[in-house]
Simulated scan of single mutants.
Amino acid sequence: MKSSRVSDRLEELRRSRFVGRDREQTLFQSALDEAQLPWHLLYIYGSGGVGKTTLLREFAYICEQAKTPVVYLDTRNVEPSPDSFFSALQMVIGLEHQNQLWEWFASQPGHCVLLIDTYETLTPLEDWLREFFLPQLPENALVVLAGRQPPSSAWRADPGWQALMRLISLDNLNPEESRTYLTKRQIPVEQHSSVLNFTRGHPLAMSLVADVFAQHGNIHFRPEAAPDVVKTLLEQFVQEVPSPLHRAALEVCALVRLTTEALLCETLAIPDAYELFNWLRGLSFIESRLQGIFPHDLAREAISADLRWRNPERYAELFGRARGYYCKRILQTQGLELERALFDYVFKSPQVRQFFISSWD
């Protein structure tokens, strides 16, 4: 009898904890089921730790079950140059020469799939991939790119790729899926609400919290009591902060409901916040709306919890400056702007917020 490998056991354990992503799996499976691929590129994007790699592993499993050749390439350690990319791909497939790549793809009797993970590291190579590498692949090839950032305007502006590409914005698991995951990880049911209030269904966050329970037994979870969990999450969301001022801007963004350039100038006591605001807006976990920008819920919780734990005096200072800014707006505005200023002012005070809501009702 053939003995199983450690990798087999790892894969079995990973799959046993896989939850949700039904829509994404159905989309991927539907493409493989067609005699001719309806599209050739699946572009998946989402914040760090949201489950992109896990989903790619599930895609690989779907391919294996369907006897579809699949190649998985994680580009985090690949230099963003054509030669390095080709070399990495050759090594994964097991080919000796670069010109064998095209032959390998074309020689597959049916569809074949190329999964490229950590795609954000290949940003300098994007034009080459879009205009040379991908178009050279045979029609039986389906490529899946998974990275933190949405596709650039060059992808969206190309009529050809508009027709041959599908987009998936990967978000947190919904409440039902999240509770299923926590149950699988043997988290006590009475703790589910406190865990979900912090993690908001973020897969990595739930996994880290589940590890805390596994190590310490039946505890009452609080973010401030798990600084290692928060640190790991911050590393996933924020890979690099250029300066202390940028870090302060990020902390302000986590403390307020919506961030604007004017608010940054006031809270950080600087005359111009254009560069800081644009840096914030470019982060993968920052979202935009008409009135300003705001962080992903979990990123907000993690940054706030880290600041409260690391420097409570700084937390109080920034919070007070933001409150001062909103007080000025309340005195200087009226109508809809006044209503927004009031909501901004009470954003971190649930009891006061409930008072205002009750009064307006």
Rank of each mutant, 00 (worst) to 15 (best):
E176K: 09
T180R: 15
T180M: 09
L182V: 10
L182M: 12
L182C: 06
L182T: 02
K184V: 02
R185Y: 06
Q186H: 08
I187S: 00
P188Q: 09
P188M: 12
P188A: 12
P188H: 09
V189L: 14
V189D: 10
V189C: 10
V189W: 07
E190P: 08
E190I: 09
E190A: 09
Q191P: 00
H192S: 08
H192M: 07
S193K: 14
S193A: 14
S193W: 07
S193R: 14
S194T: 09
V195C: 03
N197A: 14
F198R: 01
T199L: 02
R200M: 06
R200P: 00
R200L: 07
R200S: 04
G201D: 03
G201Q: 05
G201K: 02
H202V: 07
P203A: 03
P203K: 07
P203H: 03
A205K: 09
A205W: 05
A205P: 13
A205H: 08
A205G: 13
M206C: 12
M206W: 06
S207E: 15
L208Y: 10
V209A: 00
A210E: 12
V212G: 08
V212P: 03
F213W: 13
A214W: 04
Q215L: 14
H216I: 01
H216N: 11
G217Q: 07
G217D: 13
G217R: 01
N218S: 13
N218A: 14
N218Q: 14
N218F: 10
I219F: 13
I219W: 06
H220W: 05
F221A: 02
R222A: 15
E224L: 14
E224W: 07
A225H: 10
A225T: 11
A225S: 11
A225W: 04
A226Q: 14
A226R: 01
A226F: 01
P227M: 10
P227I: 11
P227A: 11
V229I: 13
V229T: 15
K231Q: 15
K231I: 06
K231F: 14
K231S: 14
K231E: 15
K231W: 10
T232C: 11
L233K: 12
L233A: 05
L233E: 03
L234M: 15
L234F: 05
L234H: 10
